[in-house]
């Protein structure tokens, strides 16, 4: 475990906590895409199939449980909580997210490191995570005026991906047994690039101390 990987995991964890904090304390999920949250829950469920069959470390198991638990509680809040669900921007959150799932599954069946059920599901989760933020980015663009917590949530998610790339570069040079991982690297790079536009506007808004506003 290197510092970049740890920092990446911590920003990822913070992004989820910021989102839960917003939902739990303000009792609002305005500006949050349910489509993206559904995709993330699916990503974690598909990737962590090994949670009870393969032990890596206590850290690894605890973090997996936190990510699974938090993503499904966010779904519960947005769909079932009687106050929170009323603040959901249903009419704006129209991205056809189901159309992302099938191509990712087909791609995982075609391009993977090993053709086994667990490995294909793991690869599927890598592909799906790369594009899972799209409904959220589209919703942000539509609402344009982004509240602070939502902006921080997306910023932290982007930072997590960026830090993971530095972690891969570090591992490649520092760990003798670490070989090339094109599937994770290319997917991770694509995912980070999707945030580039958002990052530009977010950093400008922080610098100028104004509310984040995305162009139409």
């Amino acid at each position: 475990m290197n510092i970049f990987r740890l920092a990446g995991d911590m920003t990822h964890l913070m992004s989820v906590l910021v989102l839960l904090l917003k939902i739990h304390t303000i009792k609002s999920c305005a500006g949050i895409s349910l489509k993206t949250q559904e995709l993330y829950a699916l990503v974690f469920a598909a990737r962590y199939l090994d949670i009870f069959t393969h032990y890596y470390s206590l850290y690894n198991t605890v973090m997996k449980l936190i990510f699974l638990g938090s993503s499904f509680s966010i779904l519960w809040y947005m769909k079932r909580h009687k106050v929170v669900r009323r603040s959901y921007d249903k009419d704006q959150d129209t991205f056809r997210h189901h159309f992302l799932v099938l191509p990712c599954l087909v791609l995982a069946l075609l391009i993977n490191e090993k053709f086994t059920f667990k490995e294909v599901m793991w690869t599927f989760s890598i592909y799906l995570e790369a594009v899972a933020i799209l409904p959220q980015l589209v919703l942000l663009q539509r609402t344009r005026n982004v509240d602070n917590l939502t902006g921080q949530y997306v910023f932290l998610l982007g930072a997590y991906r960026g830090l993971y790339i530095i972690n891969w570069i570090y591992r490649y040079f520092a760990e003798p047994t670490y070989s090339t991982h094109w599937i994770t690297w290319i997917s991770g790079l694509l995912q980070t690039l999707l945030y580039a536009d958002f990052f530009y506007y977010y950093i400008n808004s922080v610098k100028n101390n104004v509310r984040l506003q995305l162009p139409a």
């Binding site: 090993k114 760990e175 994770t184």
Partner: peptide, 10 residues
């Protein structure tokens, strides 16, 4: 194995 090296990440 190299398989596990990428799978120890979250």
């Amino acid at each position: 194995s190299s398989q596990q090296a990428s799978h120890d990440e979250l």
